[in-house]
Every structure is written in structure tokens, then in C-alpha cells.
């Protein structure tokens, strides 16, 4: 198997470009392959949704580091809706929600069309996390994000303590599934190498394997799922550029890929194709409706040929 790629999906975007550049270079040095710069929206959402993060970034970045844009929405009340989110999705690679109380957490887990539910772990939650609530998020493919940097940099021991107790609680409630570890580091000193994060997770009771998933597999599924929601047709069919070909052949290739993808995934109702555009993927069904991975498709094919 090819070596794993490491993800850190939460680097706060700041105006202090020197510091940010240093952080990005340091993350690359530590061994991360994909990072996401986070723009935080608190309170009222402005009418101009274009992100303040310029493309391309105003400083040189390591050539092989993939940099994504992410938006974190603070939820103080139930004012957010999926229509606004679908507008935001055009501007950002990843959307995350940060609920601040019980009711918004419920909304974020159950209905909101986001990719990540990010929790502020330095605050004691109003009630205990409930499995039914979080599992509804995980069933839709929405992952839970844990930010470790505050445990490292914060000088306040009680914040550290609360964070650890919250993490342990979340690990118990989600049974260790669907957790994404990211830093949310305000300065360079708050980030740690992937192996150190995995060790931290294992000290906190998650185990090495699950800890590794938390910086490789789970964030990857977040990124890819978000990309599919943005670019593909209903998050099911996506045409991948298949190299340089003459015009006629290229057309053939496209239909082929479509055919292949549909083979493994039967219940695509063609009937309501016209009204599909607006409905988000998450409402059309649970995890089983997700597109099969390339690997799975290959495996299926292999099985067929073997038989």
C-alpha cells in the first residue's frame, strides 16, 4: 500500500502573513501533505461571501503541499440553513459548523449540510454528548473534529483538563469512529507531527489504529466527500479527466467511466433527475448511498473476472 497522506484540516487564517507562512512551512516539515486554512464566520453571515483568503496565497508555499480553504461557522442560534451553505460551498473546499449549545449541536448533527462538526473542547458541554445525536452525524458522513492545540499551548490548566475530559468522553460516545484530529493552532508552537498526534490519541484512549485514521483516513473522506458535493452530479457521478485523447475517443471514455460507477451503485433513481439539482446529497439517504470508491470498484471487477 502506498504510504498514508497526513491531513491537518484546521489552520486559522490570520492577517499576520509572516507567521502564517512559517506555520505552513513548518507543517510541511513535520510531514503533513494536505492542510486547510480556516476562515471563521461568527454571528451574522455577511452578504459578500467571497473568502478573504486570496488565491493564490500571497507567499511562497512548499510545492507539494496541498492547501484547501475552509469555513467554520459559529452557531449561536438556529439561523443557518442549507441554502446559505450551498452558496458558501461555491467559495470554500470544506464547510464546518461549530455549535455552541445543545440545540445547535442537534441541528448540526441531524440536518445541516456541512462536512465537519467542530466542537469547542475547552468549554464544558451543557449536557453529556449523546450517541444517538453524534451517530446521526456519522451516518450522514459528517465527521466530528477534535482540536488538540489548546491542550498544548494553553497556560490555564483547567482548560487543558476540560479538553482531555471532553476528548475522552467523545471517544467513548462515538466508539472511536469518525473522529478527525486537527490542530487549530494560533501559533507555530501549537502544531505537532502526525506521529505525535497519534501517540496523544493513544494516550487518551483511542488506540494507535484509530488515532492514525484520525489524521489520515477520516479527514481524507471529509475532503473527498466535500469535493464530490461541490463538483459532481448529486455527489454520485463525477467525470474524471482521463488524459489527452482525440475528441471522439475522449467522449467514449467519459461514458465508460459513468457506466462503471453506476454498475456498482444500483439505486440511482433516474425518475426525479430534473428536481435533483437542489437537494443535497445527505438527504437522499445514509452512508450506503455514497459512491463506491475506486478501490471497491476495482475489487468488484476482480471478483467478476475471477468468477
Amino acid at each position: 500500500m502506498s504510504p498514508a497522506m497526513f491531513y491537518d484540516l484546521n489552520i486559522p487564517w490570520s492577517e499576520n502573513l509572516g507567521e502564517l507562512q512559517r506555520t505552513v512551512a513548518f507543517l510541511y516539515e513535520l510531514g503533513y501533505d494536505v492542510i486547510a486554512l480556516t476562515h471563521t464566520l461568527a454571528g451574522k453571515v455577511p452578504s459578500d461571501l467571497t473568502p478573504p483568503i486570496p488565491t493564490p496565497l500571497p507567499f511562497p508555499t512548499p510545492p507539494r503541499l496541498r492547501i484547501l480553504r475552509r469555513c467554520t461557522l459559529y452557531m449561536h442560534d438556529l439561523g443557518l440553513n442549507n441554502k446559505l451553505l450551498s452558496q458558501l460551498r461555491e467559495h470554500y473546499d470544506i464547510l464546518a459548523a461549530r455549535p455552541t449549545n445543545e440545540r445547535t449541536l442537534q441541528q448540526a448533527c441531524a440536518t445541516l449540510d456541512v462536512d465537519l462538526v467542530s466542537l469547542d473542547l475547552t468549554q464544558r458541554p451543557e449536557t453529556h454528548f449523546k450517541f444517538s445525536m453524534l451517530s446521526s452525524a456519522l451516518a450522514r458522513g459528517v465527521k466530528i473534529e477534535l482540536c488538540y492545540s489548546q491542550a498544548i499551548t494553553s497556560s490555564d490548566p483547567s482548560a487543558k483538563r476540560t479538553l482531555i475530559s471532553n476528548v475522552v468522553q467523545l471517544i467513548r460516545v462515538t466508539r472511536g469512529r469518525g473522529l478527525v484530529f486537527s490542530s487549530e493552532a494560533q501559533s507555530v508552537l501549537g502544531v505537532r507531527a502526525p506521529s505525535d498526534v497519534i501517540n496523544l490519541a493513544s494516550v487518551w484512549g483511542l488506540g494507535h489504529e484509530r488515532g492514525k485514521d484520525g489524521v489520515t483516513k477520516e479527514p481524507r473522506s471529509v475532503v473527498e466527500y466535500a469535493r464530490l458535493k461541490r463538483t459532481s452530479y448529486r455527489g454520485v457521478v463525477d467525470v474524471v479527466y482521463g488524459g489527452e485523447k482525440p475528441a471522439a475517443e475522449a467522449g467514449e471514455g467519459k461514458t465508460e467511466t459513468k457506466g462503471q460507477k453506476n454498475q456498482g451503485k444500483k439505486p440511482l433513481n433516474k425518475r426525479d433527475a430534473d428536481s435533483m439539482e437542489g437537494t443535497p446529497v445527505s438527504q437522499s439517504g445514509g452512508e450506503k448511498d455514497r459512491p463506491i470508491s475506486k478501490r471497491q470498484a476495482k475489487r468488484n471487477k476482480k471478483m467478476e473476472t475471477a468468477q
Binding site: 491542550a151 498544548i152 499551548t153 508552537l189 505537532r192 505525535d196 501517540n199 496523544l200 493513544s202 494516550v203
Partner: peptide, 12 residues
């Protein structure tokens, strides 16, 4: 060894 590792990780 995980304890020692964690202690090193928490050093700033």
C-alpha cells in the same frame, strides 16, 4: 514509553 512521549509532545 507513551507517557514520556506525551510529556515531550506537551513541551513548548
Amino acid at each position: 514509553f507513551e507517557m514520556v512521549w506525551a510529556a515531550l509532545t506537551f513541551m513548548t
